[in-house]
Simulated assay, not measured.
Amino acid sequence: MTTGKKIGTIAAVVGIVLVSGLIYYHYFFVFGEGVKAGELNYIVKKGYIFKTNEGKLIQSGVRSRQMGTLENNEFEFSVTDENIAKQMMGNSGKFYELHYKEYKSSLPWRGFSRYLVDSIYAAKDVHSK
């Protein structure tokens, strides 16, 4: 093997490793995880090709992006586990504490959101917080 072919092969391998690492970091590396709590506004199954479960929590408190306006804190998320999604669909409007994982980017079969709910810590009636 000539020196030029060796350099080309090494460069190709390094390139593949770099691109693979970037893809992993961008789509599969768990950037953060935590718990969000709030009232479940909705959870729906939607999508053109990949049907995914998408939901929104309304969190207590008010924040403002612009001076002089009020806005609810909202947490939009995706759910990949069908059992969790069905449990939430049957209890819309309840107060939930949800564990989630945050990724840098979403994938079509994983949902629209970068935030994936993977478990429910608690579900209570809104009046029994």
Rank of each mutant, 00 (worst) to 15 (best):
M1V: 02
G4T: 06
G4D: 13
K5I: 06
I10K: 08
A11C: 15
V13S: 06
V14I: 11
G15E: 04
I16S: 05
I16Q: 05
V17P: 00
L18N: 03
L22M: 15
Y24Q: 03
Y25N: 12
H26N: 15
F28Q: 06
F28R: 06
F28P: 01
F29G: 02
F31D: 04
V35T: 14
G38Q: 09
E39N: 10
E39W: 02
E39Q: 13
N41S: 15
K45W: 03
K45I: 09
K46N: 13
G47R: 01
Y48F: 10
Y48H: 07
I49D: 13
F50P: 00
K51Q: 07
K51V: 06
K51L: 08
N53K: 09
N53E: 08
G55K: 02
G55T: 04
K56E: 09
L57H: 02
S60F: 03
S60C: 05
V62S: 08
R63A: 12
R63G: 11
R65A: 07
Q66F: 13
G68F: 03
G68I: 06
L70Y: 12
F75Y: 12
D81H: 14
E82W: 09
E82R: 15
I84F: 06
K86F: 09
Q87C: 04
M89T: 10
M89S: 12
N91G: 06
G93Q: 11
K94C: 01
F95P: 01
E97V: 12
E97H: 04
H99V: 05
K101N: 15
K101I: 06
K104D: 06
L107A: 03
L107C: 07
L107S: 04
W109C: 05
R110K: 12
G111Q: 02
F112Y: 15
F112E: 10
S113Q: 08
R114Q: 08
Y115W: 00
L116N: 08
I120F: 13
I120V: 15
I120S: 01
Y121R: 06
A122L: 08
A122F: 13
K124C: 09
K124W: 04
D125C: 00
V126Y: 15
H127R: 14
H127E: 13
K129E: 12
